[in-house]
Structures are given as structure tokens and as C-alpha cells.
Design a binder for these strands. Structure first.
Lengths: 216, 216
DNA sequence: ACCTGAACACCGTTCAAGT
DNA sequence: ACCTGAACACCGTTCAAGT
């Protein structure tokens, strides 16, 4: 029994059933331990959540050495995204931690510090680096920030609209969905390549930053 | 008693104490009603949360008529941001709804449909519109997606690092924070203008989209 | 038929009783 | 001193008993 084992068990439980299925009692059960035993290694549930986030941020690859700023930032953000794909419950928890005005955990601070260092080493002024951090926003941690995920894995909705009703009520969404499905030669699923779209948005942002760096 | 009154009471409670302080029992109490009476107007708590989000999206201004696409999108996103500033718990709830793979609610669908319509009317191809929606991501709903809010309103942390320790451990963050504070002629607070940074990031994104529209 | 109180199966955390 | 079971104050929701 150690703090690390508690956090690992908590992360595993969240990976399985989402953060709603996470409870102190279930973590204890998974570890074959009485619930109150957890409080030896963790102050309370909020501190446990902070620890879990810290563990995830530790999974992000360190910056590649001897790379220009753009390659370094891009690689790190894509590594963060791979981490989030392994732990899809993380954005929700991070969001709730921010709203609770919790101080960022050490691993997050270190991550942000090193990211700022990459920009600075790449020639960004302090001011431009500050803007760059805001521009990147939660994309720095790999948030894909989709407003709706594809409907592929969703439970079939009994009172879902018919295609005709969809087209009548949401003509633009329907046209877009059909065009994308046709492009990908697939009628099944949304036909939308999330990885491509993420990199598209990331590169557009990096392009904008590069332009600011060259002509401030 | 009506669905609208239930949703309004729920939104008011969340505005006051955040979404963690929201419970069916407290909503009922605020309405002077027995808890089970809520289930006449709302199927369960998840459906209540969907209803609350729907109500918020309804607060976003409709698109201004006779404006070019960029003005229309910009205005609408800034209106969405003003809505989120009134209801800071909303991003967390929206995030959790997405992760639960809940189908987007009608008001969200209508909002997205009309936003797609703005891009299309502005001359964006179906394909470019699709990319644009992904690029905008949750910024479409006004998410400011800061990784850490300013430390101004945060409770004083008893075991916070001293300025010297901060500078030693997180040199780049410290340098950035000091430069920003100096810029704004203020040592109090983060000295960081969130509204300015939001519009800076938004405009950089819109610049990128405009460039793609002109030279595909 | 409608409404609602009690009850059920949870939850995070306190605390006193045990070792 | 450490550990832990029971208890407390909650929670969302079911359901049977009341009207």
C-alpha cells in the first residue's frame, strides 16, 4: 500500500467506468482494503483527483531535444492528446479542478513551465509567449474540445429524429454530415477523422503564432 | 410549478454555489416543494442538466443580420462568452455531458446549425466549414479554456511556495508572471486581461480561417 | 389517477472505540 | 499510536401507501 498504488487504482477505475463510477469505497474494494485506509495516503477525494491529474501529466513525453520550437510544441501537444485518449475522463476532472480554483498541481506547473521555456528558447518575447500560452489554451494539454463526439458509439435513441426530420430542422448540420460521410466513402459513423481535425486545428494555430513571431 | 421554473431554480442554485452544490433535494427546497415533485417535470438529474444547458444556450444572442461571416461569428462567440461568465459552472457540465455521449440537446443543435449556416453563407465550402467548426471547437460556446485562472480570488494557501522557491522551481512561469504584472503596472493579482486574451486568440483563429477561405 | 412519504442503495468523511 | 468499524449527514431514485 502506497500513495502510488492508490492513485493507480483510482486511474484504472476511472478508465473503466468514467469518473462518475469512481468512489473512495470502490477504490478501497479494488485494493482489498477498508475505505478509511485510503485516508492514510490521500487527504480527501479532491486531493485524490489532483493526484490522478498529476499522474496523467507525468505520462506526457518530455520535449524532444534539439528541435525548433514548433516541432517541440507540436510533438508535446500530440503526446498530451495520446494521453487524453487513454484517459477520456481527464478533461472533465481538470475542468472541475480549475472551476474549484484549486492551485495547479506540481506536475502541471512543471509542464507549463517547460512549455513556456520552449517558446522562449524559440525566440518568443515574454509578451508574445504570454499570448501564445493563452492562444494554445487547453489544447496544450491535448483537449480536443469537440462540441459533439461522433454518434457511432452512442446508444440508439428510441425517439431520435428521422433523416427527413433532421434535414428539415437542422439543414446545415445534415448537409455537412452527408458531405463528410461521402468524402470518406462511408455512410457508417460520422466519417470524421478526429486525429486529422485535431492536427488541422493545431497547425492552423501554430501557423498563426509563427506569423506573429516573424512579423510582430 | 413548471419545467421552466424548475430549470430556472436549478440554474440559480448552480450560479450561487457551483454544480457540486446542486441537488434535487435543494432545488425542491428552493421551490418550496417536496423532492419527488420535481420528477413530474424532469425525468432525472441528467435530463435536468441537459435542460439547464439548453436554457443557457438560449441566452446566446442570435446572429446579427446583414453582417459578413467574420463579424457574425465573432459577435456570436463573444455573446456566448458573456453567457459563460454569468454561469462559470457550465463548461464542466457540458464537458461531462459530452463524455457521457449524451445526444446534443435541441438548443445546442440549433446553435451549431445556425453557426454552420453563417460559414456557408460567407462562402465557405462544405469541407472548409467542417474544418472551421473543428478549429473553433468549444470556443464556439465561449469556452475560454484557460489552464489556470488567475490566483487573485484563490484562498491563500498556507504551504504556498515563497517567491524565491517559485523562481527556482518554475523560472519561466515566474518570469512571465512578473513581466505581465509589470506591463499592467500592477503587482496585485495576475495582471492578465482575460477578455483581451480571449479576443486575441479568437482573432488569431479567425485570421487563419480567413486565409484558408481566400487561398484554399 | 395523482401525489408523496418512507425506504433503499449509495456517497464522503468524522470519530470513538478498539488494538 | 495506529487502525477501523459504526455512525453521520448527505445523495438520486424506487415504490408502496395514501388521497
Amino acid at each position: 500500500m502506497s500513495r502510488g498504488r492508490v492513485l493507480a487504482a483510482a486511474v484504472a477505475l476511472a478508465d473503466e467506468g468514467g469518473v462518475d463510477a469512481l468512489s473512495m469505497r470502490k477504490i478501497a474494494q479494488a485494493l482489498g482494503v477498508v475505505p478509511m485506509a485510503l485516508y492514510k495516503h490521500v487527504a480527501n477525494k479532491n486531493e485524490l483527483l489532483d493526484g490522478m491529474i498529476d499522474a496523467l501529466v507525468g505520462e506526457i513525453d518530455p520535449p524532444v531535444a534539439d528541435a525548433d520550437w514548433r516541432t517541440a510544441v507540436r510533438g508535446r501537444v500530440l503526446s498530451a492528446r495520446r494521453m487524453l485518449l487513454r484517459h477520456p475522463w481527464a478533461p472533465e476532472v481538470i475542468e472541475s479542478r480549475i472551476k474549484a480554483r484549486t492551485a495547479p498541481t506540481p506536475a502541471v506547473m512543471e509542464y507549463l513551465d517547460s512549455m513556456i521555456g520552449i517558446f522562449r528558447a524559440g525566440g518568443f518575447s515574454l509578451d508574445l509567449t504570454h499570448h501564445a500560452m493563452h492562444v494554445m489554451g487547453s489544447r496544450l494539454l491535448g483537449f480536443s474540445q469537440e462540441l459533439f463526439s461522433d454518434s457511432a458509439g452512442r446508444a440508439p435513441d428510441p425517439d431520435a429524429l428521422s433523416p427527413e426530420e433532421m434535414a428539415a430542422r437542422y439543414p446545415h448540420i445534415t448537409a455537412l454530415a452527408m458531405a463528410v460521410a461521402h468524402d470518406r466513402d462511408s455512410v457508417v459513423g460520422s466519417g470524421c477523422d478526429d486525429q486529422f481535425e485535431f492536427e488541422f486545428a493545431l497547425d492552423l494555430t501554430l501557423d498563426g503564432l509563427e506569423r506573429l513571431l516573424r512579423a510582430p
